[in-house]
């Protein structure tokens, strides 16, 4: 039980580390982030939504991961976000788009797309593991020990 809790806290910490670092990096060099978003092979009309939506969502997930009662929701959101990034990385690597753009903020920018994919897959796996552990914790059977109700 304690071991599960420790693993869960480590997973939350790793996710917070990624999301908070990535979002603050984007806001610290926002103009460049807008340029990089424009450079992605997506319609430029999406840029205003993406440049505000992604970092804000990352911060919201980080905040939600801190608290026990919002953690399950945050883990679901993290899984959805990381899966989206993973699918996007796969599409880039598979040459689905006409060109390969540069990537996102901070030191993460220095990663190649296959490395990005590996990082994303790692975080998808972390989110899944976190979800499984958190759900087990949240929905644990009431009658674990019949003597506890005596």
């Amino acid at each position: 039980m304690l071991k599960r809790q420790v693993v869960l806290e480590c997973i939350a910490a790793l996710l917070i580390l990624l999301f908070l670092y990535a979002s603050v990096s984007k806001f610290l060099d926002f103009k460049r982030f807008i340029d990089e978003m424009n450079n992605q092979p997506l319609p430029n009309s999406w840029t205003p939504f993406l440049v505000w939506g992604i970092p804000c969502l990352e911060i919201a997930i980080s905040a939600a991961l801190l608290f026990e009662y919002t953690r399950l929701l945050a883990l679901y959101a993290s899984l959805v976000l990381m899966t989206s990034f993973t699918i996007y990385s796969i599409m880039i690597i598979a040459h689905f788009f006409p060109y390969v753009p540069c990537s996102c903020g901070g030191v993460i920018r220095k990663l190649t797309w296959p490395q990005h994919l590996a990082l994303n897959l790692f975080y998808v796996a972390l989110s899944v593991l976190g979800l499984v552990l958190q759900r087990r914790k949240s929905f644990k059977p009431i009658f674990i020990n019949k003597h506890s109700f005596v």
Binding site: Y99, V100, C102, S103, R109, K110, L111, T112, W113
Partner: peptide
């Protein structure tokens, strides 16, 4: 750092 691929 980018993956070199086909021309635009």
């Amino acid at each position: 750092a980018y993956t070199p691929i086909a021309l635009t």
